[in-house]
C-alpha cells in the first residue's frame, strides 16, 4: 500500500537520506529505530511532504508523487493519504480539542460541521478525553495534548498515521497513556509508521522494525530478528546500547 522508491533528501550538500527503499502493507505496524540525526524524522516528514525529497517516488494508496516532477495538487493529494503526529503535538492553539480533531473533516473533506464535530467527539472519547472536548491546548497536559494529536491524525482519514517520536517531548508520567492509545490503534490494525526511542513499544507492537543509520536502512525484520538476532554489526551495537538504557 505504501511504496517508497529511491528516496533521497539533501539539505544543501548534506545528504540526509540516501536511496531509501521500502514497502508497508495495509494494517502493518512499522517502527523505525536508529541513532539521532540519521534521517528517521526526515524520512517520515518526506512521506508527508513536510520536507520535499530531492529524488525518489512515494506512493501511498492511490496517490503517487515523483520528487523531480510533480504539481502542487499532487502534494495535497499525497498528504490526504497520511496524517502526522508531531513530537511537540503542534495542536492548533486557537482551537479546542474538539475543533482540532474536526478541522480536517470540515476543511479538507467538506463534512457538514455538526457531523464532523460528532465524529470528532467519538474519536476523543475513544482516546479517553471525553472530559476535555472544549479545552484549549494550553489547558491540557502534555499527555492529553498528544492524545488530541493522535485523535486529529485519526480523524484525517489517511491510509497511514506517521508518528514522529510521539513520546519524546513528554514527561515520563504521561508516556504510558500515549503509548496505550497507540497500542489500541495497532490492535485495530491501523497502518502506522512510528519513529521512536521506545524500544519496549517496538518489541511489543511492531510487525516490522527498521534500523536506520547515516541515511540508509541498515537492516529490517521482525522485532525478534532485530532485537534478539541482528545480522548487522551496527544494528547489534545500537540495539545492545538501546536495550541497556531501557
Amino acid at each position: 500500500m505504501i511504496n517508497v522508491s529511491k528516496l533521497g533528501k539533501k539539505f544543501g550538500d548534506l545528504a540526509v537520506l540516501k536511496e531509501i527503499n521500502f514497502e508497508v502493507a495495509k494494517g502493518e505496524i512499522v517502527v523505525i529505530i536508529g541513532p539521532s540525526g540519521t534521517g528517521k524524522s526526515t524520512l517520515l516528514r518526506c512521506l508527508n511532504y513536510l520536507e520535499t525529497p530531492t529524488t525518489g517516488i512515494i506512493t501511498i494508496g492511490p496517490a503517487s508523487i515523483d520528487a523531480v516532477d510533480h504539481k502542487a495538487k499532487d502534494v495535497t493529494a499525497l498528504r490526504k493519504q497520511s496524517s502526522f503526529v508531531f513530537q511537540n503535538y503542534s495542536l492548533f492553539a486557537n482551537k479546542t480539542a474538539l475543533q482540532n480533531v474536526a478541522e480536517s473533516l470540515i476543511t479538507v473533506w467538506k463534512v457538514p460541521k455538526q457531523q464532523a464535530l460528532s465524529t470528532a467527539e467519538t474519536i476523543l472519547v475513544k482516546v479517553g478525553l471525553a472530559e476535555k472536548l472544549n479545552a484549549y491546548p494550553s489547558q491540557l497536559s502534555g499527555g492529553q495534548q498528544q492524545r488530541v494529536g493522535i485523535a486529529r491524525a485519526m480523524a484525517a482519514k489517511g491510509e497511514v498515521i506517521l508518528f514522529d517520536e510521539p513520546t519524546s517531548a513528554l514527561d515520563p508520567e504521561w508516556v504510558d497513556e500515549v503509548l496505550a492509545v497507540m497500542k489500541q490503534l495497532a490492535f485495530e490494525k491501523q497502518t502506522m509508521i512510528v519513529v521512536t526511542h521506545e524500544m519496549q513499544f517496538a518489541k511489543e507492537v511492531a510487525d516490522r522494525v527498521i534500523f536506520m543509520e547515516d541515511g540508509y536502512i541498515v537492516e529490517q525484520g521482525t522485532p525478534q530478528q532485530i532485537f534478539s538476532n541482528p545480522e548487522n554489526e551496527r544494528t547489534k551495537a545500537f540495539v545492545k546500547r538501546a536495550l541497556k538504557q531501557h
Partner: peptide, 16 residues
C-alpha cells in the same frame, strides 16, 4: 512554523 505544518499534514492547503 509547526502550526502551518500541522495544517498541511492533515491535507489542508496553505490558503486554508
Amino acid at each position: 512554523k509547526s502550526q502551518m505544518e500541522a495544517c498541511l499534514s492533515i491535507g489542508m492547503t496553505r490558503l486554508q
